[in-house]
């Protein structure tokens, strides 16, 4: 009994020491890490809406139509109070697992832009979706997510029809296209609602 107590105390002492060290490091690095995350998100949002000056997080107002994708976060993008559109952080499953993308939808019912945030697909194949130097159209230097910019939501969003696939990565291409489509549908619905509510 005494021996057990001693062992427990020794372990507790080590754990306490580790806790103190970690608390110190966390206090020092915490704000910087958070700052990076916010800055990164704002930079991505700015890429989709260069004219925007403010982003407001929407909670639960926008939900996907089917279960194939999830929305991590939705932002209403405005300039001087006037709405420019909606940006949605979409999470869906692709060839290599969870993939997240940021999809911007303008008030004119067009995709303003798409940015792949995280993709775990095969390097050199599916992961080319994120590469800034992989072009689906070499003559115009259009990347895979780049081709969605300006695309009207009334398009069918089907790979090999109105969407150019990444070579040898049909599963990735289809999964990402579906994510953009789902985000587009949900965003359009929200914009419709808020426009009516505004009137």
């Amino acid at each position: 009994m005494k021996e057990t107590l001693k062992l427990g105390l020794v372990l507790a002492a080590f754990a306490a020491g580790a806790c103190v060290a970690l608390a110190l490091v966390y206090t020092v690095t915490g704000p910087t890490i958070e700052g990076h995350e916010i800055k990164q998100l704002e930079m991505s949002l700015k890429e989709l809406f260069p004219a925007a000056d403010s982003f407001r997080a929407l909670d639960g107002d926008v939900a996907p139509k089917d279960g194939s994708v999830k929305f991590d976060q939705t932002y209403e993008v405005t300039r001087a109070g006037a709405p420019l559109g909606v940006a949605i952080k979409v999470r869906g499953s692709s060839y290599g697992g969870d993939t997240t993308m940021l999809v911007g939808v303008g008030t004119d019912r067009r995709i303003t832009g798409v940015k792949v945030l995280d993709i775990k697909d095969t390097p050199g194949l599916g992961a080319n979706a994120k590469s800034p130097t992989y072009f689906v159209d070499k003559s115009t230097k259009t990347t895979f997510p780049g081709q969605f910019a300006g695309k009207p939501l009334s398009d069918p969003f089907e790979v090999k029809k109105d969407v150019v696939a990444i070579t040898a990565s049909t599963i990735t291409s289809k999964a990402l296209t579906n994510m953009v489509k789902q985000a587009g549908i949900a965003a359009a619905e929200y914009l419709e609602r808020s426009a009516q509510g505004g009137k």
């Binding site: 020794v10 372990l11 080590f14 754990a15 020491g17 580790a18 060290a21 970690l22 490091v25 966390y26 020092v28 690095t29 915490g30 910087t32 890490i33 990076h36 990164q40």
Partner: peptide, 22 residues
């Protein structure tokens, strides 16, 4: 005990890299 020590240093380097080499 070893795991506590190793985990503590791993977390320290993980947090530092996240902050300074994101």
């Amino acid at each position: 005990t070893f795991i506590i020590v190793i985990a503590a240093f791993t977390t320290i380097i993980d947090l530092s890299m996240k902050a300074y080499f994101p």
